[in-house]
Structure formats: C-alpha cells, structure tokens
Design a protein around this nucleic acid. Sequence first.
DNA 1: TCTGCCCGGGACAACGTTGTCCGACAGGTG
DNA 2: CACCTGTCGGACAACGTTGTCCCGGGCAGA
Lengths: 351, 351
Amino acid sequence: MEEVPPKRPTMKDIAREAGVSASAVSFALNNRAGVSPGTRARIERVAERLGWRPHSAARALSGESAGVLGMVLARPAGSLGVESFFLQLMSGIQRALAPRDHALLFQMVDDLDSECELYRRWWAEGRVDGVVVVDPRTEDPRPALLASLGLPAVVVGGMETGGQAPPTGPRLSNVWADDTAAMVTIVRHLYGLGHRRVAHIGGIGGFAHTERRIEALRAEAARAELADARSVTTDYTDAQGAEAARGLLAQTTPPTALICDNEVMAVAAVSVAAERGLAVPRDISIVSWEDSVLCRTLHPQLTSLSRDTEEFGRHAAEALLAVLTGGPGRRVTVPLPRLIPRESTAPPPGG
Amino acid sequence: MEEVPPKRPTMKDIAREAGVSASAVSFALNNRAGVSPGTRARIERVAERLGWRPHSAARALSGESAGVLGMVLARPAGSLGVESFFLQLMSGIQRALAPRDHALLFQMVDDLDSECELYRRWWAEGRVDGVVVVDPRTEDPRPALLASLGLPAVVVGGMETGGQAPPTGPRLSNVWADDTAAMVTIVRHLYGLGHRRVAHIGGIGGFAHTERRIEALRAEAARAELADARSVTTDYTDAQGAEAARGLLAQTTPPTALICDNEVMAVAAVSVAAERGLAVPRDISIVSWEDSVLCRTLHPQLTSLSRDTEEFGRHAAEALLAVLTGGPGRRVTVPLPRLIPRESTAPPPGG
DNA sequence: TCTGCCCGGGACAACGTTGTCCGACAGGTG
DNA sequence: CACCTGTCGGACAACGTTGTCCCGGGCAGA
C-alpha cells in the first residue's frame, strides 16, 4: 500500500535544492545564456537527480509548442480492414517523433465531416501543434480548413490531379508516392508477360491516389494499345473487392490480369477466381498494390508492389516538424515502390 | 492568402462581450451555482457564437484532468503484423472516449523497458490522466510501476495466473477475456469431430493470455484424455508460425488439429500443410484464435474464434474512465468469444 | 427602519513554465 | 577611489483556466 502520493518535481523544487531562483533554473535547463557554468551544472545535476521533465501543459500554456501532433483516420464504423498500412505509417511517424520529444494524438472518426469538426476542436482546445492528413481527395476541404485555422499540416499521399498546382502552402507540406510511375511499372510487367487485357480494382473513388492510378492505367493502356483497361472503385473491403472481381470476370472477354489496390482485395480476387474454376496464375494473373505478410504467406504468393511504409511515415513526420519550426511547406517524393514478382503473375493462357 | 492570424477565443473574450468577469464565465460554463439563469444563458450564447472550447493545457494546469489517456504498444521494430486487433481495440476505446471529450495519445516502442520509461516520462510531463496497458505478462513490472507513480490504468487482457489474486487496485482496473473457457470451447469442438491429437501454436511466451491458454489446453486435454496436447510459443509472426507448424507436423505421430493464436499464423499453418501435401480440412484441421476478414476470404475459410474487439476496447475505456473519476478498481469480463465453424475443421482422417 | 442572511458576481491567487526587466556585484579603467 | 561595463541571477508578468474569498445589494423578519 503506497499511500504516499508521489509528487512530480517542478522547477521550484529544483530552485530550492540548488539555492537559486526559478528563472535561473529555466535559463539553465533551456541552454540560454545568463547563467554561470557552475550554477548551470549544479542545476542540471539537481534536475537529473530529481528526474525532472517540463510539464507539457505549462509549457504549452506559456506559448511554447504543445509537443503534440494529431492524426485523424476517417473510417466508417466497422470497416476496419486488415491493412497494415496505417499501423506501419504511425510506427514510422513515431520513430521520427520520439527523439524530438513529440507525441502523437490519434483518433478515428466516421467520416470526413467529423474529421473537419475534430480539427476545429483540436484547434480551439490548443491540443495539437500540427496534423497529419491522410487519404487526400481530389476535392478536399481539409487543406483550406487547416490553412484558415493556421494549423500546420502534412498531407500524406499527394494531392494533385492533372496539371493542378500541388497544394503546398506556408504551413502545408506534402509527402507523396509516385502512383503514376508505379502503375506504369505494373502494366509493363504484365505486358511483358503477354497480357493485353488488364483490369484494375481500385480503392475509394474520389481519393486522390485512386484517381491518379485510374488515370495512369488509362494513359499507359492507350500508349501500349491495350484493349479496354477498365478500373472499378470499391471501399477497399474484401466484400466489394470480391464483387468487383466477379463483375470483371463475368464479362464476355474477361481480363487476363487484375491489379488490386490493396492486399485484402487481392486475396478476395484469388478466391473469386477459384470459385469460377480459374487457377492463379495459369488462367489469371493477380497483382496486389500493397505488400504484407499476407502476400508472402498465401499460396500462390502474390506479386506485390512493395514500399517502405515506415519510411513514408518518417518522411511525413520530418516534413511536418520542418513546417512547425517555421520552414516553408515542401513537397517530398518517397522512393518509387518496387514490384516484387511472385507466383501470382505468369503469361496469360494461350499467350 | 489568409494572412490574418485567427485567434482562438478565450474566456476573457466571452467576458468582455457578455459584460461580466472571467470568473462568472467560468461558473456559467461549468454549470456551477453562483450565476443567475439570465446571465448564464447570455454567457452560453456568446460562448456558442464564438465557438469557444476550453484550452486543454490551461485546464490541465489548473488541476483539472488533462483529458488525455495514453496507450503504448511495445513491438520490436519491424514486427508489425497484419493483425487487426490493435486497430480495432483503439477504435473501440475512442468510440467510448470521444463523447466524454477525452483523446488518446498513442505510441509504439521497441520493448518493455522503453514502455516503462515512457510511462515515467508521461507522468513527469503530466501528459496523461491514465493509461491503457496491453499485452500483460505473467511477471509484469507495469502495474507496480504505475501504482508507484499514482497513474490510473486499465490492463487489457487479464493478468492472473493460477490462483493468484487479480491485480486490481485502487487505481487499477482489469478488463479481460476468459481464455480458459474459450480454449475449452475449441477443444470440445475438435473432440466432437473426433480429434484426439491436438496441438497449439501459441503467442509470445510470458504473455499472460498465452500462458493461460497453454494451461487451459493442458487441463482440458488431461480431462478428455487427449494424447500429448502440446503448445509451442512464437512471436506471432507468419515466419515463426510456419516454423512451429513444420515442427509439429514433422513428428512421428503428428497432430490432426492445430489451434493458432492469431489468424496470421493460421494462414501460415495452412500454407505449411499444403507444402507437405496435406489438404485442409481433410488431412488436418486448423482453428484461428482471431477472426478477421482474412479468415472469411481465404479458401478454405478458417474456423475462427470471433470476439467483438471494439466492444472490448469500449469496456476498457469505460473501466479506465471510472477509475479516473475516483471509482474503485474493478474487474470486467467481456463476453465469451464465439467459435465460428467454417471450412477448415472437419473429422480427422480415418476418424 | 434596522439587522441578518443569502446570492450574484468581481477581484485575486494558483497551477508550472517562459520571457522581460532590472538590480547587484565583480572586474577593469580613468 | 569613483565610475563604467558586463554578467549573473532575482522579481515579476504572462499564458487560460479553476477555485477561494469577499463585497455589495436585495429581501425577509423583528
């Protein structure tokens, strides 16, 4: 029974022990001039011994940064997939944040409106110094909202479509992956194997990266003279992935290869193929845009696009911290993902 | 170019507009007596119009709660699986927290030591009001540490082993699932199908729930006179899951059924079976302790133990909030998970 | 009409930091 | 010996909120 309530040490405690004033302690511990080396050392020693750390609320209140970044994930209730993407992204963000003494406030909400509402609340409550915005859309209200609130942000996943100017700003950075180039890589891999009818099971329509991939497939198909390279949008779930696969494979001249925007839908597509008596990769090839344990564990192992998502998160955190310290908004492009050919892609039947 | 820096409204602003003092505003907005109904209404109207929200740091500083709960996930770098468990748990926690105006500070670290270090830091910085502790171990330093810091906590996943007293305390609650009963359910399902040689690919040794499941299998096997019901511990990854499955299936009298502590290892086990020419469920039955999209999407679909993880998270949040408001530490048992028989379990060969 | 009481509401301290200002004291110089 | 300059360090306000204290006015009872 530890009934003694442990008191966290404050600067006042340090000042008392070191025989100086509170301001001297503040100067010493913030490495500011105005304190003799001897006193500074003594103060630092006492602080160390007492295990002192600055009280985050007090620091935030006196104008310093709160030391907290926010990240909101808008997902309709109950539609949590098994994508490892977000957990890995967060892992990367935090690995960059931890040494800089910043923490991550994370919240999931149901939709975009709630997300915007939450940004307003966080701003009004002074909770966060900046936010990480994910799942950018082609028509996205968030950058404008955050700019109007003066809340620094980094958009993860790029935002431009067509020739539009990239939405960076004085307090907005942008970290993105080159989906267009990635799609070209995939299509050429399939083309090289002999495929001429390729279809794409995409993610959520209106998401910037979904639209970019659709556009990239269309352009590359036109260039390579592929027939009817169509894209279908889904909500990333296995159910809609399966439904999309069924629709595509039921056509009179079905595609010989499917590109799936995440691994969950790729697995669903494999199941649908089996259900229709099609063997992978003999009768149909399947590519997953996301690599994960799953893709390597399953049989057949899935040909996947592999990117370093943790690294992605690290870049995002760095970009946001740079904006926080007053730097200009910048645009970072992460390395192009690699295509890892495995067992699920092969020449098409009769090819 | 919005160059005007938007100012967040403070109580002072409200006081000025309403023609009262700051303390009157505080009284009115906190529903405390001492303000006439008319003045109260006027103040509330102004606050509403200005979109005022209490500044979290100021509130925290003046002795009120910070409105932040913390959750640490200790995972060795790069061992993030595709388990949807934690994301769903967090989702549930937040759904309970949001209406109570609490936020969740989330951080991932490499190991248990870093986790303890982080609790110390959070405490010293006054960052959190309480923490959610996951992955409890049989020998766990965290409850004692948190108690010594006076930091309220809820342990998710139960902690007792054997007849030990459940570690609840004045500021410690405990939300757990009855793994023993769940294991009994699984074993009886398999026994009913005719299986007499069952093995268990468990999670991380030393984790309380792993040890509980191991013990439960041993006890139930003894009762039902099953031969050699052995358990193997792993790190939850596909790699170790596969290795464990290989080891078990290579025995001279291999088991006819495998119980896997998560879905990733269950999938790995299916692959290993295929690799050895064994068909699921004809030659070997496989049960996954975790249900997810994956288990329903794969072929054969996996017989799984299904629990409402979001509900689990909600219970955890409620229990922690109860402790925060001064309630006694309590022990909550979540509903027993249901076993969902699918295609991966069937009578054993020759059974 | 005077005394006592209750109640609305204002002034002020407190929380733990940071930042500004200014006094004290040491050293060197005229 | 007096003066100036530079540095060390203390006193104090500020941040936005909550909590305590107290004052003044209205009302009831004597």
